[in-house]
């Protein structure tokens, strides 16, 4: 079950998750989505929390070396990068697949009139 109890455990196991007294907090909706996906993959046994913490820490170090201001605002940017990285390392999806799918969403976005929900269709992959 991915639920708030699982989320609280994650917040304990992974250092420095932005949080308040109840648990994790998010600046934008996509951060909550990235967090929820990570929780689901952990639940599936794709990685342990120590493994996740190591992957996240690698991304943070890489970003710092590249001049990330490390103010906490970019925390979930590193989180997302770590998630993409682990998904590739665990053989779930290649960088190419992720890139192709992102491109398809971009295409869906461009053809969707402003004000309508964006849906991915097979034709968006080209």
């Amino acid at each position: 079950m991915i639920d708030q109890a699982a989320a609280r455990r994650a917040a304990q196991e992974v250092p420095s998750i932005p949080r308040d007294a109840d648990g994790p907090v998010f600046r934008e909706p996509w951060e909550a989505q990235a967090f929820a996906m990570t929780l689901a993959l952990h639940e599936r046994g794709l990685f342990t929390w120590p493994e996740w913490a190591a992957a996240l820490s690698r991304e943070i170090k890489r970003a710092q070396a590249a001049g990330d201001p490390d103010t906490g605002e970019t925390y979930y940017a590193h989180w997302l990068a770590a998630l993409e990285q682990l998904v590739q390392e665990k053989g779930v999806a290649s960088a190419e697949t992720l890139h192709r799918t992102k491109h398809a969403w971009e295409h869906a976005c461009d053809r969707t009139p402003h004000g309508e929900p964006i849906e991915l269709k097979p034709d968006d992959f080209h």
């Binding site: 996509w30 989505q33 990235a34 996906m37 689901a40 993959l41 940017a77 997302l80 998630l83 993409e84 998904v87 779930v92 999806a93 697949t97 992720l98 890139h99 799918t101 992102k102 398809a104 969403w105 971009e106 976005c109 991915l120």
Partner: peptide
């Protein structure tokens, strides 16, 4: 760009 990456991940997963 970030939202596109998140959507792509969710689609693939």
């Amino acid at each position: 760009e970030t939202q596109l990456r998140v959507r792509a991940l969710e689609t693939v997963l």
